[in-house]
Amino acid sequence: MTAAGADTRMPPSMLLGVLAAVTAASFVLSLLVGPSGFGFGPAGEAGTLIFWEIRLPRAVLGALAGAALGLAGAALQGYLRNPLAEPGLIGVSGGAALGAVLAIHLGLSQAVALALPVGGLAGAAAAMLAVVSLAGMQGGAVTLILAGLAVSAICTALISLALNLSQNPFASVEMVFWLMGSLADRSLTQVWLAAPLILVGLALLLSVGRALDALTLGEDAARSLGVDLSRTRLAIVAGTTLAVGAATAVTGVIGFVGLLVPHVLRPLVGHRPGLLLPVSMLGGATFLLIADVGLRLAQPAVELRIGVLTALIGAPFFVWLVLRTRGELTP
């Protein structure tokens, strides 16, 4: 474990200020970069169109989805007191993916453009209801993880079934691509559909900071400090469903951000789970924005999807985590 002394760290307000500035800069950078050249697009109608219809939705979505994944990851790691927890653990991502895949499979997305994100949202909500009714509102952390795993497994099985039964090769390709996650070619309408839900989810998740700090001392001590654990659990489950469910419904599955970002940033806040929440939210947004900029710079040489890129970055990171944990366990 990192033994960072208090004196070597920035005060929280300064750290948050610096991160907010970095996030804002990444957002602007994301608006400036694209295949049509650096800057706010070419002059004239085409430029305006590129800015409003392509770059702005992409940047807003990148920032919101990254913020949702980073914050939800930090909240779940704090609540479950486990550094390996991530938003997908409680079944929300799986539910959103299943909902979207079904929308494609049933041909709804061909008929109505918004059927895909709406399907994803419905899937995320259904997954949350299933997890909550399985785990109960009072149960401990372990029951929540088990219920999340069970629901995720069911979603994965049904996604495989949909892919398997798909008669239409185009639909199959669309499903597979959607499962890889992407920020490209999303309309402002889709962004406006997801943004309010994501923002409410973020607010709910940010509200549990004190509870997570208190939970460092265990559930009994946290309750004796006046923390309402049922309320905390509800805020985390509902907040994750809204933020990550809505983000996933529009972008597809983007893995590892929720695991990696809180993990990397934790030493910066002296491992305080409450302070880690806003820090991971900003860090997640920055990470996804920068990753997406990198993706566009690599075009047209390589056509990569953001979910594939985050997995390519995240999986080696996971290997490093395993090696480090092994190093800690063997003297």
């Binding site: 474990m1 208090a6 700090d213 460092t216 001392l217 265990g218 001590a221 004796s224 400090l225 002296g270």
Partner: peptide, 23 residues
Amino acid sequence: YLPQDRIVHWPLSARIVVGLGRL
């Protein structure tokens, strides 16, 4: 209330742990 298990889940500094009593 001081529980029997001396659990501290994250490697917080001693001062921050003591500060949790102020919540």
